[in-house]
Design a binder for these strands. Sequence first.
DNA 1: CCTGTGCTTGACATCGCTGTCACACTCCGT
DNA 2: ACGGAGTGTGACAGCGATGTCAAGCACAGG
Lengths: 341, 341
Amino acid sequence: MKPLTLKDVAARAGVSPKTVSRVINGEAYVRPELRAAVQRVVDELGYRPNAFARELSSSRSFLLGLYFDDPSSAYAADLQRGALARCRVLSYHLVVEQVSRDGEGWLAECEASLRSMRLGGAILTPPLCDWPELLDLFARMDVPVVRISPGDFPGRTAAVEMDECGAARELTEALIALGHRTIGFIQGNPEHHAAARRLEGFRAAMAAADLPVSPQHTLQGDFTFRSGLEAGERLLAAADRPSAIFAANDEMALGVLVAAMRAGIAVPDRLSIVGFDDAALARMAWPPLSTVRQPHVEMAAAAIDLLDGIARNDDALGNDRTRRLPYTLVLRDSSGPAPTS
Amino acid sequence: MKPLTLKDVAARAGVSPKTVSRVINGEAYVRPELRAAVQRVVDELGYRPNAFARELSSSRSFLLGLYFDDPSSAYAADLQRGALARCRVLSYHLVVEQVSRDGEGWLAECEASLRSMRLGGAILTPPLCDWPELLDLFARMDVPVVRISPGDFPGRTAAVEMDECGAARELTEALIALGHRTIGFIQGNPEHHAAARRLEGFRAAMAAADLPVSPQHTLQGDFTFRSGLEAGERLLAAADRPSAIFAANDEMALGVLVAAMRAGIAVPDRLSIVGFDDAALARMAWPPLSTVRQPHVEMAAAAIDLLDGIARNDDALGNDRTRRLPYTLVLRDSSGPAPTS
DNA sequence: CCTGTGCTTGACATCGCTGTCACACTCCGT
DNA sequence: ACGGAGTGTGACAGCGATGTCAAGCACAGG
């Protein structure tokens, strides 16, 4: 099966290849009738331009990179799904890359990878989005970047974010409204800077309600189930056991839930647990988790849109290179009124 | 930052571009000393050939496609992680694509996508791997394919699989050994043909032990949590409630677990539940799920290796185009002795 | 000394497309 | 009628690599 080329189409339409190219790319200066005629031939033959040749001669690119630290988290999967769907629509292709800061050569390896394959843009997810070396690399390579929930360097690149602080505050306020006065908090991966905002929001709500936040009740996790389990066990074994625990993501909240089960503490009767993200997991737990819905799919789609805009040089975007998406509180059965005892 | 080209390297090394190309590609007929000298320059400059140009002139390709039906399942994430890791090593790039059979144009869209971007190979995951139209398409486009757990058309393409039937039988035997005599089974997505083997294995074990399998105890699910929950509820409400339930994947098993919790049925004391896959989820449940570990990561890596082999025309592979990987029974706390009552 | 063979190297065309530029033509105002 | 601006079109070069082929060289055998 010989591939169809521009020349074939041109011959069939009785015009020069360049004219076909103009039609394909929607360039100006083609007579409307001619444009229509050529378009008809293109459709008839089902012609698709070879993306590699295109890229080579125009240094545009149709490949977008999605960079993850850990591509197997539920978070990553959601982002990917959103990005993928949008890519289809805008006819980009998505290249997934995994980067970790282990070892010496990670940056060099990234650079090599980028040099061998020019990307039209890249999406950096936390915690990568806050690594200055990586941002420098993309800047040097002149690859447009959109960051998801960046924690540092605001304004340095386009970004998609959510009001994590506000969301955490609202969720905490909801717990306080349920009568909880002693609330534990399990932080996420310290490298994930945006996640630190969740702690801020929690503290803000507690301070506003004049409730104390003891350091023993503010534990460090790393977003994994295991870390949530361990932190949960410690919190539940404490003398002044909190009546509610806020974990900075759903996986850790699930860990706390299991810790409570093991310890025979009824949820939500004797302990309320809330998470963050509204991952698919949240609904698979028993009781289902109260959490904050972070619109991951939409965030990824917005990121693709931003990249597309930058590629098209839509300076209509101008200064508006940051999209902020709304969150939603999702109160399910893992949280309830504080025990009266 | 101007990109480094073959010519630059050639000039620096005092040879022709073609010779550099030879060194890069490890072709024969270059004097060892020259080869070493050129290699040194390449390393020094950190030169990387432009993959697009390479692809254009040689019609080789360094892009591998990973095709999913649902890219957000835990299964998909595991496969992707394995593929990604192997790609890094072999310096391929991974393009992720999502295909569904909705609507009219899905095949045409796939074809268009493939025509615009020649892939060096593709990995098809279930249930896509059993869609004959898709297999035909790839054959027509002359893109090598490796299928993961194909259900139909054995031998048609290279494949990576696992003994699903044997695994299901062993797991069922383990339940029988625990004293269970009435065991429910929840099937997976009927489109996922390989998964039908799990039912076969289950039936084989039951038959071997002379235990009846009632049709009311063999329900249809679709691999989602929700379908597991619903099937679980039905099984648990039945008059002759089974003492153990085998769900064809972990997500559905989790659904059954929640159904049991809701109904106040203690697991594993009054009901044993087992899943299949050993997804990350399995360990996040309470009690943690007994299941069969399917080596997803290794399977994906093997698939990449197969594609690489095909690309290099290693006919050393010859007829050995199917890799079968081993499973492991993982018995955790969601299964236990049958209740004596 | 000549021819043949095998190794080593580079010149050149080519992959499919787009950027650049030149040319042709139409439509003005003067 | 003529210069100039604005349109429409195609010829041609080149993006950065590899395939092909021919040429140069060394060494063997006749």
